[in-house]
Simulated assay, not measured.
Amino acid sequence: MHDGRTAYVLLDTAKVHDWASLHKVCAEAFGFPEFYGRNMNAWMDCLTYLHEGDGMSRFTLEAGEHLFVLLPDFEIFAARVPEIAEALLSCTAFVNQRYLEQKEMPCLALVLQ
């Protein structure tokens, strides 16, 4: 969903049970390309260039826009797959750090529901 200055994407945490299912859910939700590497390095690469419209994601953000990543039932998810939950947190922070290094405002925000 995209409503002007904010875009939203829902990651269905109930469908994530291992790394393969995480990358399947993310590829579908973010609209990653067919050649998506299905690892966290590829995940970070796909989300680093959200302003460029390079086809790495279904989202193309304008300057000042944000992508809110909704993570329902996060506590249950984190208890079930703690390593994956931690990876989402740390990789999102890494992507936002890349934006800062490019002299841009970070645009990814996790919403832990």
Rank of each mutant, 00 (worst) to 15 (best):
P106I: 02
V25C: 09
G4L: 08
F94R: 14
A85C: 08
G55A: 06
D54L: 12
W43I: 03
G64T: 07
A14L: 12
L11N: 03
L11K: 01
P106M: 07
P82W: 03
A79E: 15
L89N: 12
V111D: 10
S90Y: 12
L110D: 02
H2N: 13
Y8S: 05
V111C: 02
L22E: 01
M40F: 15
H23K: 11
L70F: 00
Y49N: 14
K15L: 15
E34S: 11
M56S: 14
G31Y: 10
A78D: 12
E52K: 13
D73A: 01
D18T: 11
D18M: 12
A109P: 00
Y49P: 02
C91L: 12
N96W: 08
A27G: 07
F30T: 05
L108C: 09
T6H: 01
D73Y: 03
H17P: 09
C26R: 04
P33D: 09
C91V: 09
F94C: 12
K24Y: 14
Y99S: 04
E104T: 02
P33G: 05
T60M: 14
L67E: 03
R5P: 09
P106N: 07
L88I: 12
A78P: 06
A7H: 13
I76A: 10
F74I: 00
R38C: 08
D45M: 14
N96V: 07
R58L: 13
G53N: 03
L112V: 02
G53Y: 05
R38W: 01
A93W: 09
A29G: 00
S21F: 03
Y49H: 13
K103M: 01
N39Y: 03
A93F: 08
L67A: 08
E75W: 00
D12E: 15
W43L: 08
P82K: 05
L67R: 06
T13M: 08
D54P: 10
A109D: 00
L100M: 12
M40N: 13
V16Y: 02
E52S: 10
W19Y: 14
H23V: 12
G53S: 02
L47I: 06
A93P: 07
C26A: 15
V16P: 06
Y36H: 13
A87C: 11
D18F: 10
T60R: 15
F30H: 01
G4A: 05
L10Y: 08
E65W: 10
I76L: 12
T13I: 07
A42M: 06
V9E: 04
P72W: 00
G53P: 00
T60Y: 03
D18Y: 09
V95A: 11
Q97N: 14
C107P: 02
L88P: 00
G64R: 13
Y8G: 04
R80P: 06
L108R: 01
V16Q: 07
M44N: 10
H23L: 11
E52N: 11
G55N: 04
S21N: 04
A27C: 10
L100K: 14
T13R: 06
V9I: 09
C46P: 08
A42G: 03
V111A: 01
L50T: 09
T13A: 08
H23Y: 15
E52H: 11
A78R: 14
A20K: 15
L70S: 06
T48W: 07
D73F: 00
A63K: 11
L112T: 01
S57A: 15
E104R: 13
